[in-house]
């Protein structure tokens, strides 16, 4: 059996992103490197054949997803998995957690200048952040970090994909 077809079958059957190592478990003859290569070939093939799906890297894994051009046709089926858009408070809090992790509630509150308990709980319940550690010192406050689901939700490979602060279009302008 061709490696590309095996990899395709496993990816097709999965509802969540799979890492190359996970896909390689399909057969004893497969290595993660073979899988990576097969995924590259499949991507080219889908591109060349103008398929409605493509293999996207999400977190440290891959998943077959529909291409954005087909989104309007799928919106009619929106009844179940509509991903709720996050509020601005949630997005700002996530931004701080992503850049500063591991980070405590207090640090988040200092940056935003508002209370963060409710937003953090909400993000935790949605599986977008997790408790990664406890800080030393008084009360040993919980330290938060982002999760795999966070990467999936924003279509990122890694937290490093986020823009570097120095590249942001912020007018740190002085006069003139």
């Amino acid at each position: 059996m061709k490696t590309t077809r095996i990899v395709e079958a496993v990816l097709f059957a999965s509802e969540t992103p799979l890492t190359a190592a996970e896909i390689a478990r399909a057969s004893g003859d497969l290595s993660a490197k073979d899988v990576e290569q097969a995924i590259g070939e499949l991507c080219h093939e889908y591109e060349a054949e103008d398929r409605s799906v493509q293999i996207y890297p999400l977190g440290d894994g891959y998943q077959i997803l529909t291409r954005p051009e087909y989104a309007p046709y799928l919106e009619r089926f929106d009844s179940i998995t509509r991903t709720n858009k996050l509020s601005r408070a949630a997005l700002e809090t996530l931004a701080i957690v992503a850049y500063r992790q591991p980070v405590s509630r207090l640090e988040v509150e200092e940056v935003r200048g508002v209370s963060a308990a409710g937003v953090l709980r909400n993000l935790y319940e949605r599986g977008l952040i997790e408790v990664v550690d406890r800080a030393e010192g008084l009360g040993r406050p919980l330290l938060y970090g982002t999760t795999k689901r966070f990467l999936d939700h924003f279509g990122l490979r890694a937290v490093d994909d986020l823009p570097k602060p120095e590249n942001l279009e912020i007018a740190l302008r002085t006069e003139g």
């Binding site: 509802e15 077959i64 954005p68 939700h153 279509g155």
Partner: peptide, 10 residues
Amino acid sequence: EADRALHRGK
């Protein structure tokens, strides 16, 4: 987030 929402999985 908006861009990711345009891609649907199985």
